[in-house]
């Protein structure tokens, strides 16, 4: 088994771990973590494939850089949504 295949397997494992977290919990912060873990798994598959080709595939790597920045923006929005939903339910309760 080559390095590429090993990291492909780890990437798939991370993705599934994230999916499991997404289905197993209802705590909003953990859901955000789970989605981030899923995206890390996807990135790992892409980077492992980029490393495999010779020369190293710069297009795949650039796509992952783009993906990282988009992921952090989405995380920021999701976390604020989670926090504001919680505050709204508290406001309704009082």
């Amino acid at each position: 088994m080559s390095t590429t295949l090993f990291y492909l397997a780890i990437g798939i494992g991370l993705w599934l771990m994230g999916l499991h977290g997404l289905l197993a919990t209802r705590q909003s912060i953990i859901l955000v973590l789970a989605i981030n873990i899923m995206s890390s798994g996807t990135f790992m598959v892409m980077v492992a494939l980029a490393t495999h080709s010779d020369p190293v595939d710069p297009v795949l790597q650039a796509l992952v850089v783009t993906g990282l920045v988009v992921a952090v923006s989405a995380t920021a929005l999701a976390l604020r949504l989670a926090a504001s939903r919680r505050r709204r339910t508290e406001d309704d309760a009082t």
Binding site: Y7, V47, T51, V56, V65, L68, V69
Partner: peptide
């Protein structure tokens, strides 16, 4: 995996 750009990011 030989992606220093990504490691930094």
């Amino acid at each position: 995996l030989g992606a220093p750009d990504l490691a930094l990011a």
